[in-house]
Write a protein that binds this DNA or RNA. Structure first.
Lengths: 345, 345
DNA sequence: TTGTAGGCGTTATCAG
DNA sequence: CTGATAACGCCTACAA
């Protein structure tokens, strides 16, 4: 590998000058700069990023933490893929790189380890849940002043730097939409309560129901774990109370689709016998039959914003305020929620 | 940050000894080792990975290259997600980290840049296509002896280190299965020819057809670009020749589902009016209605194997043979390919 | 505007 | 078994 030294020699300048040229620092004679660049090109010199990191005492890497649970599909790949793309875009704009960490959630979760090795300057944490271990780990990070940003999750009573979507509003609108289509008996299939989103969505659902003066008997409240399978399994419970249900709002697309599958087996077809709206507006929503109405969540933008703000915090001397940013959602109406027949006996 | 020096002082040994302890090198008195570890724990010392990389002249990072094309969904997120998980698993086993690079395929694709900065020791390249630029870039990498491994792609006439699935065999079996179910008029919806998989699948399809003594009139050969939309659009062409089609083999699940959607709009229901088999066995196959029969491709294992072999090459002095590894596929039969009615008029 | 020189935290080589 | 001591490639005051 060709080093700065060789470039300096060829250009007839000092090594420091080569550095200045490559970092655009200080005033310098254009001729000098020219010579250096020429020499560098000739030798095919490229700064050694590791050495730079070493000298600057920062890695230039943004850590991205993903939950790793093979064979368990609580999250859709779509979700992470979008967020990762957003992070990736931002990171490139700022000259950073992305270091991916797949962490098994149940292993003694120690986020500080990521920073100790100095391989990352900050982290974006995806897919975290509200468990005692995670709270502990995150509080520890915060106490040590290590910069991080949570995406799509918040912790009751704690204040972290986080980027979220407005799930309360999104859910509210979804349920409102169903009401406007004429449905009154609207069930809610929520996901695991460990995700703050679940609470948000419940809140939005309840708000819309109560504003419309609608009762919410317990049979209308179902719970899955965000997997397709859990939605599929929820079908049997819902089926028992089918005379009390005209529509469903599900906390994600996968559960919605699973539920549709379960009900279809019983002869209940979404968009015909009942309406349903999912959440995430993932590609699965377009693949399902009928196409699934869904709440669009700007995952890409959330990833991008998370990366942007956590990296911005690095520049401003780690003075990251623990702010919560909420991005807006929107409703995408497809066939699954169109009123065809309203069995409002 | 606490450094080796401080540990050495506290333990009353030299810095070199501290390093030896942490690297498990050379024989040493247990008592010494004990003291060092004790001191390290007390000070909460952890080696600085950047400094180590610098001194060792290797980053300890495996680069993972993903094609980045926002809004264009030629690949399913499932695909990358599985491969990434496999890579992630292997990488952790070997104490490496994963550095993610999202590269826009049409930008002047220069893979060598990744290595020049020394931020990665080797790369796994996903989603590459057979274009002149990519050939050029890869040949350049190879010429410079930079270690890399391609996943799910090969280049006619060039020999790279690559991990692939046996798509010829998989396609062959899918078509054979359709034949065994009694179908004779079997169409093939392929993806873009820039992906070597497409050629492989065509080969498998043709083999099965010719072995069964079946003609393949041109109307049976359709081409999409692996997106759902392209499958959806292929429906119209297929519909025109519907009297010549009883079944379809599609080169991926997304196109298969798009095609099913397009045909459903015309009243043709998969699993009833025609049979269809997709490829990838992605989660979408389970979400679709009817559930889609599909060729299972071991993406996870492919990612893992790619990481394993490319990292192994690093140890053995870069003596990576440019081998092609092919992992086996298998057929997963779901409702979309079950013979219900055979309209074999 | 440019050069000098110390330092970053390890690894690795050589003595002892 | 352990301790010095050069690298490693670059950054950055500080000096000129």
């Amino acid at each position: 590998m060709v080093t700065r030294k060789e470039v300096a020699e060829l250009a007839g300048v000092s090594e420091a000058t080569v550095s200045r040229v490559f970092n655009g620092l200080g005033p310098m004679k254009p001729a000098t700069k020219e010579r250096v660049l020429e020499a560098a090109k000739q030798l095919n010199y490229h700064p050694n990023a590791i050495a730079q990191s070493f000298a600057r005492r920062r890695s230039g890497n943004l850590g991205v933490v993903l939950p790793y649970m093979p064979k368990v599909h609580l999250f859709s790949a779509f979700y992470f893929s979008e967020i990762l793309s957003g992070i990736g875009e931002q990171v490139r704009e700022q000259g950073y790189d992305m270091l991916l960490s797949l962490l098994t959630p149940d292993e003694s979760l120690d986020y500080t380890r990521l920073y100790r090795s100095q391989k990352v300057d900050a982290c974006v944490i995806l897919g975290s849940r509200d468990t005692p271990q995670q709270r502990e780990s995150l509080m520890q990070l915060q106490a040590q002043g290590l910069p991080f940003c949570l995406v799509n999750q918040s912790f009751e009573g704690l204040s972290f730097h986080e980027v979220d979507a407005d799930h309360v509003e999104g859910s509210y609108r979804a349920v409102r939409h169903l009401q406007e289509e004429g449905y009154r008996k609207i069930a809610f299939l929520n996901g695991s309560p460990q995700y703050s989103n679940s609470g948000d969505r419940l809140q939005g659902y309840m708000k819309a129901m109560s504003e419309a003066g609608l009762e919410v008997p317990p049979e209308l409240l179902l719970e899955g774990n965000y997997s397709r399978k859990s939605g599929y399994e929820a079908a049997s419970g819902l089926w028992e109370h089918r005379d009390q249900v005209e529509a469903v709002f599900a906390a994600n697309d996968r559960m919605a689709i699973g539920l549709m599958q379960g009900l279809r087996e019983r002869g209940w077809i979404a968009g015909r016998d009942f309406a349903i709206i999912g959440c995430d507006d993932s590609d699965a929503a377009k693949l399902s039959d009928p196409p699934l109405s869904s709440i669009n969540v700007p995952f890409y933008e959330m990833g991008k914003e998370a990366a942007r703000s956590v990296l911005a915090g690095l520049l401003h001397g780690g003075g990251t305020k623990d702010t919560r940013i909420k991005l807006p959602t929107s409703l995408v109406v497809r066939q699954s929620s169109r009123a065809v027949i309203i069995n409002d006996s």
